[in-house]
C-alpha cells in the first residue's frame, strides 16, 4: 500500500465512487480497481486477470470485501464503497425514528420537506435537512447506486415528483409509504405520468419488510430492515406479489 494509492482511494470515496483494492497475498502487490459504471478497471496501466475484475464487480454489488484464488494465488479484494445515503422525503414521525436508525447503520440520512414547520432541527437533531421541493432536492443530491430513497408524506404533490426523480435514477432502493390500495393508485398515476413498468417495478410499496409493524417506530424498523436486505441481496428483499 503506497501513499498514492491511499490518496486515490480517498478521492474515489469523496466522488462517491466505489473502488476495490486488490492485494495479491503472496507478494503484497496492490492493484486499485475503479468503478466506471460499466465495470471495474485498473486505475493504472496494469493488466489483471478478467476474473479479478468480475470478482470485484460481484463483491461490490453485494457490498462486501473478500478473498479469492486466481491462477494459483490468493487475492484479497477490499471494497471501499462510499457511505450509503438515505434520502427521506417527509419530515414526519416515521422519519424522526428512521433517520437515527439509518445513522446507526452507517448511512447518512437526509430529510427533505418544504414544510419548514416539520423539518426543524428540534425534531431532527443532528440530521441534514433540506427545505426545497422534493424533486428539486433530489436533483441537487443526485441519488447514486449507494443511495436509498423513501417517501413518507402521504401527499402525492410531494411524493410523486420525488418518486419520478428517484425511479429514473440509479438509487438501490426506492420505497413509498402507503397501503396496498394507495400503492396501486400511485402506480397508476406515475404510469400515466410516463414512468415505465420497469421503473415502477423497482418501487417498494407498501414500504418495509412484512414484520407486522404497528406505529412509527416499528414501521421505521421495517423500512430500515428492507433497505439492509436490499443492499445485502437477501432473499427477504424479493417481493412475491410484484
Amino acid at each position: 500500500m503506497t501513499p498514492e494509492l491511499l490518496t486515490r482511494i480517498l478521492r474515489n470515496r469523496a466522488d462517491r465512487r466505489a473502488c476495490v483494492l486488490a492485494t495479491r497475498l503472496p507478494d503484497g502487490t496492490p492493484v486499485l480497481l475503479e468503478d466506471h459504471d460499466f465495470g471495474f478497471r485498473p486505475a493504472g496501466s496494469e493488466t489483471v486477470p478478467a476474473a479479478l475484475l468480475a470478482e470485484a464487480t460481484s463483491l461490490a454489488a453485494a457490498g462486501r470485501s473478500g478473498t479469492t484464488t486466481l491462477e494459483g494465488a490468493d487475492w484479497f479484494l477490499h471494497l471501499h464503497a462510499p457511505p450509503p445515503r438515505l434520502l427521506i422525503v417527509g419530515a414526519v414521525h416515521i422519519a424522526q425514528v428512521l433517520a437515527p436508525f439509518a445513522a446507526g447503520l452507517g448511512m447518512l440520512p437526509v430529510v427533505i420537506d418544504p414544510r419548514t414547520a416539520l423539518a426543524t432541527p428540534e425534531r431532527f437533531p443532528g440530521v441534514a435537512l433540506r427545505h426545497e421541493w422534493p424533486d428539486d432536492a433530489l436533483r441537487a443530491l443526485r441519488p447514486d447506486r449507494h443511495t436509498a430513497v423513501v417517501v413518507l408524506t402521504h401527499d402525492s404533490k410531494l411524493d410523486d415528483p420525488a418518486l419520478t426523480e428517484a425511479l429514473n435514477g440509479p438509487a438501490f432502493y426506492v420505497g413509498a409509504l402507503g397501503s396496498r390500495r394507495t400503492h396501486a393508485k400511485r402506480r397508476d398515476r406515475l404510469h400515466a405520468a410516463g414512468l415505465s413498468d420497469r421503473a415502477l417495478d423497482r418501487l417498494r410499496g407498501p414500504v418495509g419488510l412484512a414484520i407486522g409493524a404497528i406505529g412509527a417506530e416499528e414501521i421505521a424498523l421495517s423500512i430500515a430492515a428492507e433497505i439492509v436486505a436490499t443492499r445485502r441481496g437477501s432473499p427477504l428483499a424479493t417481493r412475491s406479489e410484484s
Partner: peptide, 14 residues
Amino acid sequence: VLVQPIATGPAGAV
C-alpha cells in the same frame, strides 16, 4: 488480518 505499512515502492513478500 493483513497488516501492511503505507510505504512507497514494492510491498515485498507477505
